[in-house]
């Protein structure tokens, strides 16, 4: 591994370096994926552009809608007071990533750009209808996270472009989120399957007004289970209806068999975890109301 290292001190300078190096360079956030890929020889780069001295990329603004800078660490997500209530799934996703050493430096922006199909926080962000903002020489553009993720390790980022931040709306009342992960051990584990869910009930608290379900490790990207979402919206969330949503999500998943689990097993786990995550959302809405 051998490259030139650059540390821009402004966003404009970072964008400039990105545009100049194009596919010969990459931006460095926490480095928990990038440095390993470089060392393995999977990435041959002439330039690495460290982002830690660019001001304003590590902020969390949770007054009203939520804005996360790309350099917000998993540790910061885990500990932020704004995420202990309706947005609890963000904490649940962040706190199972690696060990403390990785969560102390690994960033939410880096996790998205790394585009692992088994990413843990990304499914949670998908359930929040998150948009991502990218900066390049042509200016800034904002696009839905759903659609930004193209394939394993692939995103809609253009060469030289930089992910600067994420944004999603605050959740209305009668809403909750939940994140569940299946692995062979409790820590330091790449997900066999992970599931995030968000449920918003109608004003009467009886029917599902808005449902989001997202899956990890069962498709080339983390992805939403739209048929399952649609089947629940407008319906009373009875145990049977939640189980039916689990079955639909399992039918929508496209898992592979690999060293961690078989495709068949993953499909079964999706069904169980989706039902469970939705049930947990419902319990949380009821707990918050009581």
């Amino acid at each position: 591994m051998s490259f030139e290292y650059h540390e821009p001190t402004s966003l404009a300078e970072a964008v400039d370096l990105g545009a100049r190096f194009g596919a010969d360079g990459r931006f460095l956030a926490g480095g928990t994926d990038l440095i390993i890929q470089i060392r393995r020889g999977k990435l041959r780069l002439r330039h690495v552009v460290g982002l830690h001295r660019v001001p304003g990329l590590d902020g969390i603004d949770a007054n009203g809608s939520v804005t996360l800078g790309a350099l917000v660490t998993h540790r910061a997500l885990e500990r932020h007071s704004a995420f202990q209530g309706r947005l609890r799934a963000l904490v649940e996703g962040a706190e199972v990533v690696g060990g403390h050493q990785v969560r102390n430096v690994g960033t939410v922006g880096g996790n998205i750009v790394n585009a692992s199909p088994a990413a843990d926080v990304t499914p949670v962000l998908l359930t929040l209808d998150t948009t991502v903002t990218c900066a390049g020489r042509g200016g800034e553009r904002t696009l839905p996270l759903d659609g930004f993720l193209v394939g394993p390790g692939q995103t809609a980022l253009r060469p030289g472009e930089l992910l600067t931040g994420l944004r999603f709306s605050a959740l209305p009342g009668r809403s909750a989120t939940a994140f569940l992960k299946a692995g062979r051990r409790k820590a330091m584990e790449i997900s066999v399957v992970c599931v995030a869910a968000r449920l918003t009930l109608d004003a009467a608290g009886e029917r599902c007004a808005e449902v989001r379900i997202a899956l990890g490790a069962v498709a080339p990207t983390t992805r939403r289970a739209r048929a399952a979402e649609r089947a629940l919206e407008g319906r009373v969330p009875t145990p049977d209806a939640l189980r039916a949503a689990g079955r639909l999500a399992a039918a929508e998943s496209q898992p592979i068999s690999d060293v961690r689990a078989s495709a068949r097993y993953r499909t079964l786990v999706v069904e169980t975890l989706v039902t469970r995550a939705l049930t947990r959302c419902l319990e949380r809405i009821r707990d918050a109301a009581s």
């Binding site: 290292y5 460095l28 928990t32 460290g50 403390h100 050493q101 102390n104």
Partner: peptide, 19 residues
């Protein structure tokens, strides 16, 4: 390879010295 960087545990194997 764990060391403490500004008091926090980090893996020194994936941290550039320049950082």
């Amino acid at each position: 390879c764990t060391v403490l960087l500004d008091g926090r545990a980090v893996n020194a194997c994936i941290l550039l010295a320049a950082q």
